[in-house]
């Protein structure tokens, strides 16, 4: 579109740029401002950081108390570490389950492949909330799993899974498995089969060839899939809220309670800013390069 004048270009660039600035980036500026305020018993429930004095001067009433509170109050540190740990182990299990699945799909005949991909994709399109709810029907005390196990005589009492951390793990694995399989499939599918044939010709066992060739070449897919599971899992709210026990302190849930339960908006804003710096900043940079690599 070279002949378009620079005015025409700006007609294309400006709408998305301005919209995202206003509704994605600037909100963080407001969150930062409010994180420096104090809680107050009016609507909205925080003090003004910028105030106009009667003699028309601006004055700043900022405090770092909320950030100090985050550092001194144990709940946030514990919740943050707990969320990282939960997300980490869920990602590992997703990887252990998703890798063989992606590998099997990549080796399937073309026609079967597209059907299998559709089968993996379909749950990704259907409601997340409803799928988490559906899982409850399987794992609750009188759900399908316990009914089957009791019937088979494998257990004498129903297993207590609902409202435990195990339920949260199951929920994350169940919900995010497609996100792991799809990028893994994308890299495994591109793998050149002649490399494996060459390895076999040179006397390599299939297992050895897998370790030496397939695994290293699929690292980009492993990283992309792990990121797609890990990042949303750290901030997950629905799964710990619906499946986890009352003492499951994932950071998303703590934040939700701070906001809707305690109405402490300044502390919630401070958590949002801290979260942004701790997790999202480095990963956004990484993701930026990753997306460019996937596009290439």
């Amino acid at each position: 579109m070279k002949p378009t004048g620079s005015q025409g270009r700006w007609l294309i660039i400006l709408p998305p740029l301005v919209f995202l600035l206003l509704f994605f980036l600037i909100p963080f500026a407001f969150a930062f401002k409010i994180s420096l305020a104090q809680t107050a018993a009016h609507v909205p429930p925080y003090t003004d950081v910028l105030q106009v004095t009667p003699d028309h001067h601006w004055r700043v009433f900022a405090t770092l108390a909320n950030y100090r509170y985050l550092l001194t109050d144990e709940v946030y540190g514990v919740a943050y570490l707990f969320s990282l740990r939960t997300a980490f182990f869920s990602t590992l299990i997703c990887l252990a389950l998703g890798y063989p699945m992606a590998y099997a799909i990549a080796r399937a005949p073309r026609a079967t492949q597209s059907v299998l991909l559709l089968v993996i994709m379909l749950p990704f399109w259907t409601s997340f909330l409803l799928r988490v709810y559906a899982l409850e029907g399987i794992i609750r005390d009188n759900g399908l799993l316990n009914t089957v196990l009791l019937h088979l005589g494998l257990i004498e009492h129903p297993l207590r899974i609902m409202r435990t951390n195990l339920a949260v793990y199951l929920g994350i694995i169940y919900s995010y498995l497609p996100f792991m399989v799809l990028p893994l499939f994308a890299t495994l599918e591109k793998l050149d089969p002649t490399l494996l044939e060459a390895a076999a010709d040179l006397g390599s066992t299939p297992w050895r060839a897998f370790l030496d060739i397939t695994l290293p070449l699929s690292v980009p897919g492993v990283i992309a899939g792990s990121m797609l599971v890990f990042i949303p899992a750290v901030g997950e709210f629905v799964i710990p809220s619906l499946l986890g026990g009352p003492n499951n302190l994932m950071i998303g849930r703590v934040l939700w309670d701070e906001f809707f339960g305690n109405h402490d908006w300044p502390v919630a804003a401070a958590v949002a800013i801290a979260f942004l710096l701790l997790l999202v900043g480095p990963i956004a940079i990484y993701q930026y390069y990753n997306v460019r690599q996937l596009e290439a």
Partner: peptide
């Protein structure tokens, strides 16, 4: 994370 986008 959705919760961060939502709050901000």
């Amino acid at each position: 994370p959705e919760i961060i986008t939502g709050i901000t």
